[in-house]
């Protein structure tokens, strides 16, 4: 009954939104910004993409897969960029409290997503019963044709849509940039010790703006992936659920390492759907306990790293603190 070959691909598909959200949040946090608005950003990214492709699909034009892919991706990135800019402007330029700003962004973003998700049909006067972007979703879900015929290996490694590979690539690239490049070194310095970075001639605000905005765009793509790939283009309100928070949990679980997050997001994804594969008989309640695991694991990691107090595993030292040069 339990088959790894069917389980793993589904876990991976589950994991991608988490992974992208996590990579985005990691970028934020590495610059010293605890962005609790990521769940909202993911909603906004998703809905902007949905609006874009909804307009396109209902515009009557002949559907071209390439444009059908590009429009939602661009819309999604613009939407999440806007959210990123709001966060930057408030917390970096105006030095507002990051936690409060983040929570406000999540309130705003989730509302934004649900409002447009629930009202776009009425607002645009389109004559469709619900948002089901089947054509766009088909384009998103396109896989390598022979993958399913290539046996177990093909199914495990090649049966995914291109976005899945893009997501993993983004995680690897982010890891590379953070760990190996000058930009990454300087960015980490900003998040660890802005005064030192400032003295070394690094433009703190520019780094914060870039990393927060790029991080938000990556997270936004995670939201888009969920709707157009995982949910086959069907938008339903609140369906995205607590995945945004799970992404933030994943940042801790991966101890701020995007390359680890790839595997751990699959673990989280697996835990999220494990209940479907465990014979529980009539006891559906257990599945809710399984859904709790990612959070429990995260708490344990959080406590463990604070007890062990190993330097590499700590959150960025200046996380959550605004930087004002004349404060010193």
């Amino acid at each position: 009954m339990f088959s790894l070959v069917t389980f793993i691909p589904r876990a991976i598909v589950q994991s991608i939104p988490l992974l992208l959200g996590c990579v985005g949040e990691t970028l934020n946090e590495k610059s010293g910004s605890l962005n609790l608005g990521i769940p909202g950003v993911m909603y906004v990214g998703a809905i902007c993409g949905v609006i874009g492709s909804f307009m396109y699909e209902n515009s009557g034009a002949a559907f071209s897969p390439v444009i059908g892919l590009l429009i939602p991706i661009i819309c999604c990135m613009l939407g999440s960029l806007m959210m990123g800019l709001i966060f930057c402007f408030l917390t970096v330029t105006l030095r507002a409290n990051q936690n409060v700003t983040g929570l406000a962004m999540t309130t705003f973003g989730v509302g934004f997503g649900n409002f447009f998700g629930g009202s776009i049909i009425k607002l645009t006067g389109a004559e469709v019963p619900s948002i089901a972007l089947s054509a766009t979703s088909k384009a998103f879900k396109a896989t390598i044709p022979f993958a399913s015929k290539a046996g177990v290996v093909g199914k495990l490694l090649l049966s995914y849509s291109f976005m899945t590979y893009v997501a993993i690539a983004i995680a690897i690239i982010t890891h590379y940039v953070l760990k190996r490049t000058r930009t990454g070194l300087e960015l980490r310095a900003v998040g660890e010790n802005p005064a030192t970075a400032d003295a070394a001639g690094i433009n703190i605000n520019r780094y914060k703006y870039f990393s927060i905005c790029i991080g938000c765009m990556i997270a936004g793509i995670g939201g888009l992936y969920y709707v157009l790939d995982y949910a086959s283009g069907v938008w339903s309100n609140d369906a995205f659920g607590d995945r945004g928070w799970l992404a933030i949990a994943l940042v801790i679980f991966s101890i701020w390492r995007p390359n680890w997050a790839i595997w751990e997001s699959m673990l989280f994804g697996g835990l999220y759907i494990l209940y479907l594969y465990i014979p529980t008989g009539t006891n559906f309640a257990v599945k809710e306990i399984y859904k709790m695991f990612p959070y429990i694991v995260t708490i344990i990691v959080l406590i463990a790293i604070s007890i062990k107090n190993k330097h590499e595993n700590q959150p960025p030292e200046a996380l959550g603190l605004p930087y004002f040069r004349e404060d010193r």
């Binding site: 406000a104 509302g111 629930g118």
Partner: peptide, 16 residues
């Protein structure tokens, strides 16, 4: 006849 989440958007704007 709109979605009730509209309030969250307005709340968000005020908070910002």
């Amino acid at each position: 006849g709109l979605n009730k989440s509209f309030g969250d958007i307005l709340t968000g704007i005020i908070l910002f």
